[in-house]
Computed example of a mutant assay.
Amino acid sequence: MKSILPLCCFLFLLVLNTKPLQGAEPEPIVDKQGNPLQPNEGYYVWPLWSDYGGITLGQTRNRTCPLDVIRNPDAIGSPVFFSASGLDYIPTLTDLTIDIPILGSPCKESKVWKLSKVGSGFWFVSTGGLAGDLVTKFKIERLEGDHAYEIYSFKFCPSVTGVLCAPVGTFEDADGTKVMAVGDGIEPYYVRFQKVSSYKNKDLSSI
């Protein structure tokens, strides 16, 4: 709890050069097949341009716990789970809890996404979050346009007035690891979702 309170203060005091979502209404997020995302179902999160190189977890910085959320260009990725309070589908523009429950992880912390302070105006998307905490509230936004129906990006943008609202993108760490991050110069990272149970070459062990 002590590690969360200072970060919450930073979030209220610091607003990056981004603006909250305006003029849009929540709608069901759909996978590549056009089906709404469901809670308690695993989805691969792939880059816009490929059916590979998915989101997973890894040890970055000093190779310590908790694990950070990364993009692995050499693997299919790990199943990602989403939940929205009181809803039986996953909508856009709504506070979500995001979890990557990898089995056999060397780190014992929860695998719920949270924002983790790294430097001035910069955060990694890490794990160890507690559902409901301010630092675990992420949103998914659909790319605008008639031909962008299945294209989305993540945002850290809790539904609380005055809190940081900024896109989640990728940052290349010193060793080349592509870490999901929020901060100055971080652009949205556009993705598509593939339901694990309907993927023809299922591989739940890749991370």
Rank of each mutant, 00 (worst) to 15 (best):
Ile100Cys: 10
Glu150Met: 12
Gly169Ser: 13
His147Asn: 15
Phe81Asn: 01
Ser126Leu: 07
Arg142Tyr: 00
Asp133Asn: 05
Leu130Pro: 01
Gly119Cys: 02
Val135Phe: 00
Trp113Tyr: 06
Ser120Val: 10
Ser116His: 10
Val80Glu: 05
Ala174Arg: 13
Gly104Ala: 11
Ser126Asp: 15
Lys139Met: 10
Ala131Lys: 15
Ala181Glu: 08
Leu93His: 12
Ser153Glu: 04
Asp68Glu: 08
Asp175Phe: 11
Tyr152Phe: 10
Asn72Arg: 14
Thr170Glu: 15
Asp133His: 03
Asp68Leu: 06
Ala166His: 12
Tyr149Thr: 11
Asp184Tyr: 10
Asp68Lys: 08
Thr97Gln: 07
Val125His: 02
Trp113Gln: 04
Val135Trp: 05
Gly176Leu: 13
Ser153Gly: 09
Asn72Ile: 08
Ala75Lys: 14
Thr92Asp: 00
Lys155Ser: 14
Val125Gln: 00
Ile76Gly: 08
Phe154Gly: 00
Ala181Ile: 00
Gly128Cys: 03
Val112Ile: 14
Met180Tyr: 10
Lys111Gln: 15
Phe156Trp: 01
Leu115Met: 03
Phe156Leu: 04
Leu87Met: 04
Val179Gln: 04
Ala166Ile: 08
Asp133Gln: 01
Lys139Phe: 07
Thr94Ile: 07
Phe154Ile: 03
Phe138Asp: 07
Leu134Met: 02
Ile100Ser: 03
Asp173Ser: 11
Val69Thr: 03
Cys157Asp: 13
Cys165Pro: 01
Asp99Tyr: 13
Phe154Val: 01
Lys178Glu: 15
Asp173Gln: 10
Leu134Arg: 10
Gly132Met: 04
Cys107Ala: 05
Phe81Gln: 14
Trp123Lys: 00
Glu150Ser: 15
Ile102Pro: 11
Leu134Thr: 03
Lys155Ala: 13
Ala75Gln: 12
Val118Glu: 11
Thr97His: 08
Phe122Gln: 01
Trp123Thr: 04
Arg142Trp: 02
Ser153Cys: 11
Ile151Pro: 04
Ala174Asp: 13
Thr94Asp: 07
Gly104Cys: 12
Tyr152Pro: 06
Cys157Ala: 15
Phe82Ala: 07
Asp184Leu: 14
His147Trp: 13
Phe81Ala: 04
Thr136Ser: 08
Asp146Ala: 14
Asp88Lys: 08
Ser116Thr: 14
Leu115Ile: 05
Asp74Gly: 14
Lys139Trp: 10
Glu150Trp: 11
